[in-house]
Write a protein that binds this DNA or RNA. Structure first.
Lengths: 119, 119
DNA sequence: CCTTTGTATTATTAAGCGTAATACAAATAA
DNA sequence: TTATTTGTATTACGCTTAATAATACAAAGG
């Protein structure tokens, strides 16, 4: 698994790993039930510490995106949560406020969302 | 000016102040040219240090949302940027990915955006 | 047995956050 | 002129977090 990490920005690495995996799930690259790389493997591939990846997996697990299967290690959750996480709703609301404050029209905003959502 | 700050979460206070002002601009409570409170005044009202508010103002100024007017102190920028800031675009894209990964449909997502954008 | 896998602990280094106390230049008001 | 206001900058301090390093452990599989 290849993740785009930027060690020069202030976003924590474990958060970047978490974000990349969320994007992978949304894009369909990581379908439900898909095995994720072992912590040690992904850590070596990314050039970071094992605990950093473990922290990212812990986040994703807590948010319901992934699960730990004793047989297969870590997999993408087969079932989706019933409601949208409050955290996601808040982030979306803030991003919309930023766009509106920057002068974006509702049509531009919706076009961006459709494009980001994809197929 | 009254801002909702939460000292219990890990989001930096200066970031929360910045977010609240961005929301105020988007909601129309802070129209272009509107004077913002002096740093010291807002700091006292929020119960935080002067430099914390200064950091928030510096962020907003850097992002183009506000300007410093030697006569009026700090005001909301009269002109909007031509293009959507890359930071905002990235935040929106990530939020959309989170929503999609959580199982939200495109229609649900667009409805949320319309609601957040408001009138 | 031995390996793999996730998880946990302890220690250390580095960086960021918030506060406090000042200081300064520019503009305004008395 | 003098005093005040305003944004900005600096330095120092205490606290928290991030990331690494070195281990250790339980559970499952070969």
């Amino acid at each position: 698994m290849l993740l785009r990490l930027d060690f020069s920005i202030d976003t924590p690495i474990y958060q970047q790993i978490r974000n990349e995996i969320v994007r992978g799930i949304a894009a369909g690259d990581l379908p439900p039930g898909q095995q994720l790389p072992p912590i040690r493997t992904l850590a070596e591939d990314c050039g970071v510490n094992m605990m950093t990846v473990s922290k990212a997996y812990g986040l994703l697990k807590q948010e319901g995106y992934i699960e730990t299967d004793r047989r297969a290690g870590t997999i993408v959750s087969p079932r989706k949560p019933a409601a949208l996480p409050e955290q996601t709703r808040a982030a979306l609301e803030l991003a919309v406020a930023e766009a509106k404050a920057a002068g974006a029209s509702l049509e531009e905003l919706l076009a961006l969302c459709r494009r980001a959502y994809g197929g």
